[in-house]
Write a protein that binds this DNA or RNA. Structure first.
Length: 255
DNA sequence: ATGGTGGTCATACCA
């Protein structure tokens, strides 16, 4: 089971790159964030012609999530208890006996803002939902753009980012509350070193200068994580013309 | 300290 997550920053712009990546990498599941496209015009046909099935929850201009899979996604959920939210950031489905929860976590702008408070509340409600998912399903994967760098190894310049958005103690504590439910950061099970990133700001040539953050994560429930066989970040799509600012992260399980 | 790049939409907003 090869599962991946990629914030594509507009599926309309990035569809050719997504189709290329699917053909080349043949993942069983690819979770997308920031599709920025309404369900009415979602390019399902092009994805199905590539041999995949797809489910999606989109909106105009902002947010939007989708999951592309070789097996049929069942029991799709797009809204959770306690969160009456027009922003399309959550997509859960059962694929090949694994409950997969795709998240586009709120960015939060800056500590102390309204958006930051929304981020923390959103994370609390999602944490409650994930706790329920662990009760209801044997194996759970939570993946997506978390908009949180788990620790300073995941930040190119920790001093500069100290207590800045994506790196605050409050955000990291919220992530740890999710992990404490019974999840493992798949990448960190196999790699201890810093310097691995999944997002680089478009500005100031951050990618070519190696100045990024690791904010795209694949969390696996404890039992499932024991079957993890590989975890990596594929830097190639970030080198494309007109790239997303994020690149795909991948985990492979003996499943 | 500021602004820089990119997507969407056609002007600011979001990241």
């Amino acid at each position: 089971m090869k599962i991946a997550s990629w914030n594509v920053n507009s599926l309309k712009v990035r569809l050719p790159q997504v189709l290329d990546w699917l053909e080349h990498e043949q993942p069983d599941v690819l979770a997308l964030q920031e599709t920025k496209i309404t369900d009415e015009v979602f390019p399902a046909k092009a994805i199905e012609e590539a041999g995949y099935q797809v489910v999606f929850s989109g909106q105009k201009t902002y947010n939007g999530v989708a999951m592309i899979a070789k097996q049929t996604p069942d029991d799709v959920v797009t809204d959770i208890e306690g969160l009456d939210d027009p922003q399309r950031r959550i997509l859960a489905a059962t694929i090949d006996d694994i409950r997969v929860v795709n998240l586009y976590v709120v960015n939060g702008q800056a500590p102390g803002t309204e958006k930051f408070a929304y981020k923390l509340n959103w994370l609390q409600k999602v944490t409650d939902f994930l706790d329920q998912q662990l009760n209801d399903y044997q194996n759970v994967i939570v993946l997506g753009d978390f908009n949180i760098a788990p620790d300073d190894r995941d930040v190119h310049d920790p001093e500069k980012w100290h207590e800045k958005i994506l790196c605050t103690t409050e955000e990291r504590s919220a992530l740890n509350r999710i992990l404490d439910l019974g999840f493992q950061d798949s990448f960190r099970l196999l790699h201890d070193q810093g310097g691995y990133f999944s997002w680089w700001d478009y500005r100031m040539n951050k990618f070519s200068r190696g100045m990024g953050l690791r904010i795209d994560l694949i969390l696996a429930s404890d039992e499932l994580s024991e079957t993890l066989s590989a975890a990596y970040i594929d830097l190639e799509p970030r080198k494309n013309e007109r790239p997303s600012d994020h690149t795909p992260v991948v985990a492979e399980f003996d499943w």
